[in-house]
């Protein structure tokens, strides 16, 4: 465990809390992509199958349970809550996210640490997480005004994986740990946020509304 990793996991948790607060307090999921949320449920389920097979960890296990529970809750709200589901931008959330699942599955089939059920699914979840934000970024581009909570949610979500990159650099030098799969996927994931980060920081510094081109 190192400070980068701890900060990264807390940032990830914060992003989910911000989203839950937004949905619960405003009773609205306007600007949130249900497709991205669906993909995150798939990411967490395929990654945390080892909850039951590997020894529990005082740190990881609670986080895994919280990530699973919150991501499923968010999808439930957006799909079934009578008030919230009306606010979902169904016609703007148009990214064909199913086209993301198959390539990640095929890639995981061929590139994984070990050809076992758990390892292939784990690789699948790493690859899928890298691209899961795409529907959300596409939806933000078509949103006329992005509310602060949504902007902060996406920013924290991007920041957490950037902090993981620092954690991996630290672990490479301090613990001589090398993990190509999450490293490359994490780089791709963070790179996808590049232009969002640029516009987010610009709007924050000029104290103006966040607007993506």
């Amino acid at each position: 465990m190192n400070a980068f990793r701890l900060l990264a996991d807390l940032t990830h948790l914060l992003s989910i809390i911000i989203l839950l607060v937004k949905i619960r307090t405003t009773k609205s999921c306007a600007g949130i992509s249900l497709k991205t949320q669906d993909l995150y449920v798939l990411v967490f389920i395929s990654r945390y199958l080892d909850l039951f097979t590997r020894p529990l960890s005082l740190y990881n296990t609670p986080f895994k349970l919280v990530f699973l529970a919150t991501s499923i809750t968010i999808v439930y709200y957006m799909r079934y809550h009578k008030v919230v589901k009306q606010t979902y931008n169904k016609d703007s959330d148009t990214f064909k996210h199913y086209f993301l699942i198959l390539p990640c599955a095929v890639l995981a089939f061929f590139i994984n640490p070990k050809f076992t059920f758990i390892e292939v699914l784990w690789s699948f979840s790493i690859y899928l997480e890298a691209v899961a934000i795409l529907p959300q970024l596409v939806l933000l581009q078509s949103s006329s005004n992005i509310d602060n909570l949504t902007g902060n949610y996406v920013f924290m979500l991007g920041a957490y994986r950037a902090l993981y990159l620092l954690n991996w650099i630290y672990r490479f030098f301090a613990e001589d740990v090398v993990r190509w799969i999450p490293w490359i996927a994490g780089l791709v994931q963070t790179a996808l946020y590049a232009d969002f980060f640029y516009y987010y920081i610009k709007s924050w510094r000029n104290n103006e509304r966040l607007k993506l081109p």
Binding site: R54, S57, N60, K114, W122
Partner: peptide, 10 residues
């Protein structure tokens, strides 16, 4: 060893 590293991260 080609044992995959344990998934000690989230």
């Amino acid at each position: 060893s080609n044992q995959p590293l344990p998934h000690d991260e989230l």
